Amino acid sequence: MKIEEIDAINYKNGKAKNAKEKVVKDETITLTINGTISRSLSAIEDSLKEFAVGYLFNENMVNSMDAIKKINVDGTQIHAEIDDTLLKTNETVLCSDSAGGWRSKIKTVNPVESDFQVNASELISRIEELKDNAEIWQATGGTHVAGIVYDGQFIVKEDVSRHVAVDKVIGAAAKAGFDLSKCYVCYSGRMPADMLIKVVRVGIPILVSNAAPAGSGYDIAEKGNITMVGFVRGDRFNLYTATERINLDK
């Protein structure tokens, strides 16, 4: 079950009453890589294999599905075996996600080379569709939701962590064989450096959010040639970087 009920007292207009409220059920998930590297974080016990794939890609531990030898999920425990070639580089020692407790200070940001374009109207409609698909959020208000779009296909995942939600959709896209250079990610949440680092590492050219960018995120977007779109609300948005990828005439 992803949703559970808890006891609460509702207070409104000076009156209190006992009630049951729906909340998202999160668990402590542990990902162990090659039996030595371990990461524990709070997440929904759902799409954990996709999360593991996305995490491995986003943390620069693998650069292809072939580098992932095996992923086993046993309840809240995930065990992954990978080719450890990239683990020997300095850029995988620290994690870009908040779960790892550190934000990776990557030494170089390789610009994403992609001529992929999206119509402005599509971005607006996808954010609305994202909210419509956020079933746990609608019931509890306790999740972030992320989606990835490729050639008309739209994969949506939810989690208590915006990082995990994005890991899950990128992992699902990698498993499905999407060309990430022709995808875009849309999600609910701010856009600081740790989120931009994820899309730069996997070569996704466009990141879209209904929330605000941070200065650190703007810097990574500029260096990484990422199109960053924020404050997508109603029929408006702000376009910050690599603006040529968004067709504003349609």
Rank of each mutant, 00 (worst) to 15 (best):
G217D: 11
A146H: 14
A8D: 12
V24M: 14
C183V: 01
N247P: 00
V23C: 10
L56W: 03
V109R: 02
E129P: 00
I68F: 12
F57Q: 10
L239G: 08
V145A: 11
V109C: 03
I44E: 04
D26K: 14
K105M: 10
M195C: 02
T36C: 02
S98T: 12
Y11E: 14
L180D: 05
S121D: 15
H79P: 00
K198Q: 11
T108Y: 12
E91W: 05
R233N: 13
S98F: 11
P205H: 07
W102F: 12
D194L: 05
L86K: 15
V185N: 08
I33W: 05
V23E: 03
K12F: 10
A211G: 00
A173L: 09
M191S: 15
G100H: 03
K250V: 14
K12D: 11
I170C: 06
V145W: 02
V149W: 11
T76I: 11
L48R: 03
Q153G: 03
T32C: 06
E45K: 15
V202E: 01
N90Q: 06
N133H: 13
E50Q: 13
T36L: 11
Y218W: 06
A211K: 11
F231N: 15
G141T: 09
I29A: 07
D84T: 02
Y11R: 15
T143A: 01
F237R: 01
E122I: 08
D159Y: 03
V169H: 07
K157H: 03
Y150P: 01
I127K: 07
D46C: 12
E158D: 05
S161Y: 05
N34L: 10
S125L: 14
N210M: 00
S47L: 09
I71K: 03
I44K: 07
V24D: 07
K25E: 09
M61N: 07
G203F: 06
E4S: 09
S38A: 15
T76D: 09
L41E: 13
V185Y: 05
N90H: 05
N72Y: 00
S161A: 09
G147E: 04
G14P: 10
K198L: 05
E222C: 10
E158I: 00
N34F: 05
V145N: 01
S47Y: 14
K250C: 04
E222T: 07
T140L: 08
I68E: 13
Y240V: 06
F57L: 12
E21A: 13
T32Y: 05
V145Q: 03
V160K: 05
S42P: 01
T140K: 04
